[in-house]
Write a protein that binds this DNA or RNA. Structure first.
Length: 268
DNA sequence: ATGGTCGACTTTCGA
């Protein structure tokens, strides 16, 4: 059973529905996880997504902000949406499906709060939200059995390694790369002994990014990126993935998202 | 140069 899973912060699914369609046609994911859909469930473009071949469309949205969605061509055995931090926002959706070799596999789709501009929980409510959110995620995965088959994808809004950002020194105090956030991400990774799948394919000695700011005339020329998007797998799946790609082409499509999609191939 | 650009039922905020 070959399965291709993709994750993409789309920055408004309605503004970029044509890009989603092009991405599906060209990269052919079996499961597609989107973040920042920015649309209330009542206005979600269901028909367009189903027309792309996804029979199963699971959404968790809110008006104007945040929102995640997971589309699947594979029948689902379970769907779960967890509300973190009791703030009424929509940042998680999990789907499960059956496999011949790994039992039931669960794919968690996350959009972690960006955290605002100042890395201080006392003066910046958004940063406190980010810290609390990561804490609740860690708590959740600590409770889950280490033998379970789990995949976590999404925009975690943290670039942990020195080569996950264009300049380690210049970003040390910038939210997304502060030592405190990196420490919290490490705790999250330890909670289920997650494998950072993407870095299995590109060693930490090499620069690797998935996001480039809109505030740059030519993102390819300045190449001031950060690796904010991730795919992690639990230990039972550590040898089930067969390939990975950060798809750079969609970042140059017309009216692009500021994030590039990431693809992961599995054989179960 | 403390800039710059996106998207959202918007004249401002979140990213």
């Amino acid at each position: 059973m070959k399965i291709r899973i993709a994750t993409w912060n789309i920055n408004s699914v309605r503004r970029r529905i044509e890009s989603v369609e092009r991405f599906v046609n060209e990269y052919k994911p079996d499961i597609l996880c989107l973040q920042e859909t920015k649309v209330h469930d009542d206005a979600f473009p269901f028909k367009a997504i189903k027309a792309m071949g996804f029979e199963h469309v699971e959404i968790n949205g809110m008006k104007a902000y945040h929102g995640v969605a997971t589309f699947s061509k594979i029948p689902l055995t379970k769907v779960e949406k967890i509300e973190f931090c009791n703030k009424g926002d929509a940042r998680h959706i999990a789907i499960s499906f059956d496999t011949p070799t790994s039992g039931e596999v669960t794919v968690h789709n996350f959009y972690v709060p960006a955290g605002g501009d100042v890395a201080d929980i006392d003066t910046n409510e958004k940063f406190k939200h980010k810290v609390d959110f990561l804490g609740e995620m860690t708590e959740l995965f600590t409770k889950i059995d280490n033998d379970s088959s789990a995949i976590m994808v999404g925009d975690l809004n943290i670039a942990p390694h020195e080569n996950d950002v264009w300049s380690h020194k210049q970003l040390l105090k910038v939210v997304s790369h502060t030592p405190y956030e990196v420490e919290l991400l490490k705790k999250l990774q330890d909670s289920l002994n997650w494998q950072d799948m993407v870095r299995e394919y590109v060693p930490t000695s090499e620069k690797l990014y998935s996001w480039w700011s809109y505030r740059s005339k030519d993102w390819t020329q300045s190449n001031k990126g950060r690796r904010l998007d991730h795919i992690w797998v639990s230990q039972p799946l550590a040898d089930k993935h067969k390939g990975m790609e950060i798809a750079l082409a969609p970042r140059s499509w017309e009216a692009p998202s500021d994030h590039a999609p990431i693809l992961a191939d599995f054989v179960f």
